[in-house]
Structure formats: C-alpha cells, structure tokens
C-alpha cells in the first residue's frame, strides 16, 4: 500500500471526534441499564413467502447471499432444491417456504441462504428475506393457535413478538426432522 493510502487512513481514523457525538455516546453509556430478570434468547427473523419465522440463534451458523444451487437427479423436489456451496462445503439446500407448505415469493429482492446446524446435520435454508437477529424473553413465548398445533408436523413451537412483528418460533428438533424428511423422494 502506498504512503498516500496510509496517510488517508490515518486522517480518517485519528481525526477529532466532534463534541456533540462524544456527548451523545457518553450519555448513552452512563444511562442505567434496564434490569433483566430472565436471560434473553436470540432468534433470526426470516421471511418465507408471506410468513415470518424466528429461527433460534443456537442453530444459525451464517447467512449468505443466495448462491447457485445444483439439482440432484431423482431427489430434488419443491422443498429440497439440490446442493449449494456454503464455505466450500456442499450442503443440501431446502426452500423454507416449501417446507412450511406455503407459497414462495416469486421474485424476492434479497434472498438469503441461512446455514443452520440441527441434530440431523447441516443444511442451507433458502429464505426470501433475513431481517437480522433479535432477542426475546423465553417467558414471552405465546401458545400456538390451535389450528397450527394440531397440524401433523408443526415446525413452529410458539409465537413471539420480534421487532413489533408476531412471528412463529421454529423448534430445532422439529425443523431438523422436516429438513431431513425433505431429502427423501
């Protein structure tokens, strides 16, 4: 790298912090923290078709822009799309909306490949949008609407309020079993 570049970098990072910004951060840091009674759990909020789903943070490995998927002869179906490259490993790629039995977004603006680890191994979940990770209190987990709870293999174990949205929370075991099941023709 040239000296010019280094100088520019130094100018950028060593510059004086404006007083108002300094004050704002000082206030924020000094403010009393809200008391937390229970440990918070994290979930990644993803969209599959018109449904929002929280994926427990414990199962998330990484979220990447959707890459090419290669179909697998005689096995690929609406849910199991094929193999995709996640950090150099070829993982089975499953479309979440098809797994949930809903409609896929025909042209999602920001599709994401979310690599997850479930007891059944690693999978790449294709979602129509990923809105980031946020926390929730496990105590706030709402009961499922009766219709969902009675469905044959509900992937959703409860309802949570995330970012002002009401979203289903996926169960790791339940999702894992459904993912593995989608690999069978």
């Amino acid at each position: 790298m040239s000296d010019d570049g280094n100088r520019t970098a130094r100018l950028l990072y060593d510059r004086e912090v404006p007083a108002d910004i300094l004050e704002e951060w000082t206030l924020q840091t000094a403010a009393p923290k809200p008391e937390r009674t229970a440990p918070r759990s994290g979930a990644m909020l993803v969209r599959a078709g018109n449904e929002w789903l929280g994926l427990p943070a414990a199962m998330i490995e990484t979220a990447l822009p959707a890459g090419p998927v290669h179909s697998v002869p005689r096995l690929s179906n609406a849910a199991f799309l094929g193999l995709t490259n996640v950090d150099g490993e070829l993982l089975p790629c499953v479309r979440l909306s098809a797994l949930l039995g809903g409609q896929a977004d025909p042209a999602p603006a920001r599709p994401r490949m979310v690599a997850v680890r479930v007891p059944q191994g690693r999978f790449a979940l294709l979602v129509d949008e990923a809105a980031g990770t946020c926390g929730y209190l496990p105590g706030e987990l709402g009961a499922l609407p009766a219709t969902v709870a009675l469905a044959p293999s509900p992937l959703v174990v409860g309802v949570i309020e995330l970012e002002g949205r009401s979203a289903g929370l996926a169960g790791i075991e339940e999702l894992g079993a459904a993912l593995l099941g989608s690999l069978r023709p």
Partner: peptide, 8 residues
C-alpha cells in the same frame, strides 16, 4: 452427502 443416500 450421506443423508442423500445413493443417487443413481
């Protein structure tokens, strides 16, 4: 992936 079984 062994989870796929043998693919013809």
């Amino acid at each position: 992936d062994p989870r796929l079984g043998k693919v013809p």
